[in-house]
Design a protein around this nucleic acid. Structure first.
Length: 883
RNA sequence: GGGCGCGUAGCUCAGCGGGAGAGCACUACGUUGACAUCGUAGGGGUCGCUGGUUCAAUCCCAGCCGCGCCCACCA
């Protein structure tokens, strides 16, 4: 027998182990079935489960569990990401605690240390995903730095290099002066800040008394200025364009060039040009063949290009020093307050520097073409659809992707340099050496490129590399392309776009047909969760407190397309209560011997209550299936919530009580069978979102041959016959009972008191319904006896209306006349507003002429019903006045 | 500057051309043989504002106000 209260902690681990023992998550168990594949967004190996993971993996788990039940051979491919910079930082912090730096260890020992760290404490998140219930095929788990996946990375690099789609170039890159590495545009985030705008005077070479004024937010970069630009049509500067001015402090002449980049509306109209430290200036520099003078070192301190007195100052000290010197020279025109956005490294949190250097780039523009076309042609579809536009916007304006990083942890670039700097790109050192020997005519010593690749470079290959590419594995043939990618919008550019590019380029097919983009999980006030704000809700704590099922259900019920998920503990508690409700419904079934009967066909049920329930279940099943097919996770969860709590528990089980207690044997047996069968269906339908509690109840419901719920087939709603008459009948019984309950409550009848009920002016249909469901009405509305009457209601009755039938509670003597008067007045007022509205509508010729006939008919019926109710209640009010 | 989204009950949010909904919170009553992590009933909303389209607008269109996010730029 089940316990009174559901205790998630006692069942979850047990069932997860049972599933794994049964191999329930393994792909390939049913080779005859159609494949269904999802690749997990690989969590960082350093990570621990946060709310975003919980949401992301709950949704994936719902899809794959549903797909398995729906008869697919499912592969949910798991794994972890080596997360270059993040992981390196974790281990460097450890070393720091020992008073060491990675340079003290040297590269090889440092990398060995990271592997040791990974073996010991990396991948804790995998265990946490299990606690959440994620049904990945763990036997296929991969890591982005596994041998096979690393080989895939080298193959892609070499291939793209030979195709001219990867190249080495000297360009301005975003340099992180704290981490000492280049980062891509996407890893830079803009933050608004208050700063100053300085306007400097640069004297003309020919006329030292005359100046060109330039404004800047970064005075220290002036030491690297190699020109001043003015707009070619700017009359103010027409006579100086082409001349030189003298760069103060440095004392060198620099040209005043005419370039459309100079905006006459901004600043002074003349702009200083620092090609080595500004992206726009770099372009101007290229157009005019200007010198590019790098004045900063890797720490963003002034280097030897600066005059001796400035050397070694960091950029902010240098700024003060330059301004001070300019002021001393009398060359500061003005200083203004200014708001500007500064580029910060998303990992280091320091301002990044545009820095001129040699790096490796991917020609993203070339790869983007097919990736755009695949979406345009509908071969890959975004859900919700609005993300398509975001994807296009970025893809159509894509910039070269800087893929080299000056860190140690990651895939080292497979490029070697000869003594004269010639590049040999190859998958192995031996191949590179062979190529070099041929090129030089003799064996030479090669030095390998020290850089590693951007972590997203290997992530981009994830749907291919986890399936064995570049080998022609059976898994690759069977499971590629995958079906759905489930991810957050924050990595559309980082990851989704790049997987599209790589998948199309190397497989000729997009890696997924659907990309489901879910929202961010925020706190209950809508704030982004962050450690610094202290508003982080830990999903593991919620699992401890309320169970994984409750957390999963909460996230699912809140996962509305296109809207952020606002998480609050109260919601989780509420859905834990839902688990308890389900638990107790199962307990009730168990106590009454209501278990699924093998071979039972609900179509054979004859009792209308049972036929009514089967119809409602058919509707709920269809809704659940449709919602999942359309990725409307919230509708899936909320629809079942309503069905279980309202339809099954509040009404059906209450109906079942009198049937089970007093019905004849056939009705009792049928009701037990239908209740058991419906509960069984409910467990199946809820299993994808609440796998643990449903599996536990499934096992408790009957002696089973060890069969697990996880393997049960998903039901077809269409297979269930619906009985319109039974549904109409019971829906009416429910309305009648509700009407009586409301009247009782308004009349302050004690909840336990059994009172008589009279129904007046009921047609034959009502008489038949009462005859058929007398016990249900008496039981649920606490009625002593139902009587059909023709005569007027007894004096002192409480009266109401249900579907045109007068509902009478004869309470002579105990009735509170004033309260009843108030109740009737209120109801009459509501009816008269309704009637007026309907009259107005039905008197409108335009409505009668143009509205669909069925809408007109509905409105007429409504008016008729309201008018009838008004008449009956008016009469009731008159009878009351006679008292 | 470009793009996306959001303003519906006290709170969090569904709905999106024809009767304003849910959960939580709130009020009253209740130990009815599954469940007080519960039951029954109830109160609470000019669906941001202004126009337009329509027989009909919370829903479609336009404008405005407020809020959020993304991209680009910022001398």
């Amino acid at each position: 027998m089940l316990e009174t209260t559901y205790k998630p902690a006692e069942i979850e681990d047990k069932w997860y182990q049972a599933w794994e023992r049964a191999g329930a998550f393994a792909c390939g168990r049913h080779p005859e079935r159609a494949p269904y594949t999802i690749v997990i967004p690989p969590p960082n190996v350093t990570g621990s489960l946060h709310m975003g993971h919980a949401l992301n993996n709950t949704l994936q788990d719902i899809l794959v569990r549903h797909a398995r039940m729906s008869g697919h051979d499912v592969l949910w491919q798991p794994g972890t990401d080596h997360a270059g910079i993040a992981t390196q930082m974790v281990v460097e912090r450890q070393l720091d605690g020992e008073g060491l730096s990675r340079h003290d260890l040297g590269r090889a020992a440092f990398i060995e240390r990271i592997w040791a760290w990974k073996a010991q404490s990396g991948g804790a998140i995998i265990g946490q995903l299990r606690r959440l219930g994620a049904s990945c095929d763990w036997s296929r788990s991969r890591f982005t730095m596994d041998d096979g996946l690393s080989a895939a990375v080298r193959r892609v690099f070499v291939t793209l290099y030979r195709q001219g789609l990867i190249y080495r170039d000297k360009r301005l890159v975003n340099w992180d002066p704290l981490l000492h590495t280049a980062i891509s545009d996407l890893e830079v985030e803009q933050r608004e800040e208050h700063g100053k705008l300085w306007t400097f005077r640069y004297p003309l070479e020919d006329e030292p008394g005359r100046f060109v004024c330039v404004a800047t937010t970064r005075p220290e970069t002036m030491l690297g200025d190699t020109a001043v630009a003015v707009h070619p049509e700017d009359q103010r500067y027409a006579d100086v364009a082409g001349k030189n001015c003298i760069l103060p402090i440095m004392g060198r002449p620099i040209p005043i060039v005419a370039d459309v980049h100079a905006d006459p509306e901004k600043g002074t109209g003349a702009v200083k040009i620092t090609p080595a430290h500004d992206f726009n200036d770099f372009e101007v520099g290229r157009r005019h063949g200007l010198a590019m003078i790098n004045v900063l070192d890797a720490r963003a301190c002034l280097n030897d290009e600066a005059p001796e007195r400035f050397r070694g100052l960091d950029r902010y000290e240098a700024r003060d020093a330059v301004v001070a010197e300019m002021q001393a020279l009398g060359l500061v025109e003005k200083i203004e307050e200014h708001t500007l956005a500064l580029p910060y490294g998303d990992r280091s949190g320091v301002v990044v520097e545009p820095w001129l250097m040699d790096q490796w780039f991917v020609d993203a523009k070339a790869l983007a073409g097919p990736a755009i076309a695949a979406v345009e042609a509908g071969r890959t579809r975004f859900v919700p659809e609005q993300w398509t536009r975001t994807y296009y916007e970025w893809m159509r304006n894509i910039q070269p992707w800087c893929i080299s990083r000056q860190i140690w942890w990651g895939h080292q670039i497979p490029a070697w340099y000869g003594p004269d700097g010639r590049i040999f790109v190859a998958e192995t050192q031996a191949e590179a050496e062979a190529a070099a020997a041929e090129a030089y005519g003799e064996p030479v010593a090669l030095g390998r490129d020290a850089d590693v690749l951007d972590t997203w470079f290997s992530s981009a290959l994830w749907p291919l590399s986890t399936l064995g590419w570049p080998e022609e594995t059976p898994e690759l043939r069977r499971y590629y392309p995958t079906d759905v990618l489930v991810t957050g919008f924050d990595i559309i550019f980082f990851w989704v776009a790049r997987m599209m590019m790589m998948g199309l380029h190397f497989m000729g097919e997009a890696p997924f047909h659907t990309v489901y983009i879910h929202a961010l999980v925020r706190d209950e006030k809508g704030q982004k969760m962050s450690k610094s704000k202290g508003n982080v809700i830990d999903p593991l704590e919620l699992i401890d407190r309320y169970g994984a099922d409750a957390l999963r259900f909460t996230l699912t019920a809140l996962a509305v397309q296109g809207r952020d998920v606002k998480m609050s503990e109260g919601r989780v508690e509420g859905y834990r209560n839902f688990c308890t409700k389900l638990w107790n419904a199962a307990r009730f079934c168990q106590m009454n011997g209501a278990a699924p009967v093998p071979g039972f066909d609900p179509a054979t049920a004859t009792e209308p209550v049972n036929r009514w329930l089967v119809g409602k279940l058919a509707a709920a099943t269809a809704e659940a299936s449709e919602a999942l097919a359309a990725y409307r996770f919230n509708d899936y969860a909320n629809g079942l919530y309503q069905f279980v709590w309202a339809t099954f528990c509040d009404w059906y089980l209450e109906f079942a009580k009198p049937l089970l207690l007093e019905g004849d044997h056939a009705v009792q047996a049928e009701t037990r069978a239908v209740a058991g069968w419906t509960l069984d269906r409910i467990l199946i339908l809820l299993h994808p979102v609440m796998p643990f509690v449903t599996e536990e109840l499934h096992a408790a419901m009957a002696e089973r041959d060890g069969g697990l719920l996880v393997d049960r087939p998903w039901p077809e709603a269409a297979a269930l016959a619906r009985d319109a008459e039974a549904e109409a009948e019971l829906d009416w019984v429910i309305r009648l009972i509700s009407t009586v309950r409301t009247m009782r409550a308004d009349a302050n009848v004690p909840p336990g008191a059994r009172i008589p009920l009279m129904l007046r002016a009921a047609g034959d249909g009502v008489a038949a319904r009462v005859a058929g469901h007398r016990r249900l009405i008496e039981s649920l509305a606490r009625i002593e006896a139902v009587e059909l009457i023709e005569a007027e209601a007894p004096k002192g009755s409480v009266q109401g209306v249900c579907d045109g039938t007068t509902v009478i509670l004869p309470l002579a003597g105990v009735i509170d006349v004033a309260a009843e008067r108030a109740r009737l007045d209120k109801e009459l007022a509501r009816l008269s507003v309704e009637i007026a509205r309907l009259h107005k509508k039905l008197e409108n010729p335009g409505f009668l002429a143009k509205a669909p006939a069925e809408v007109v008919a509905t409105e007429r019926d409504r008016l008729e019903a309201a008018a009838l109710a008004q008449a009956k209640l008016t009469e009731a009010a008159q009878r009351l006045a006679e008292l």
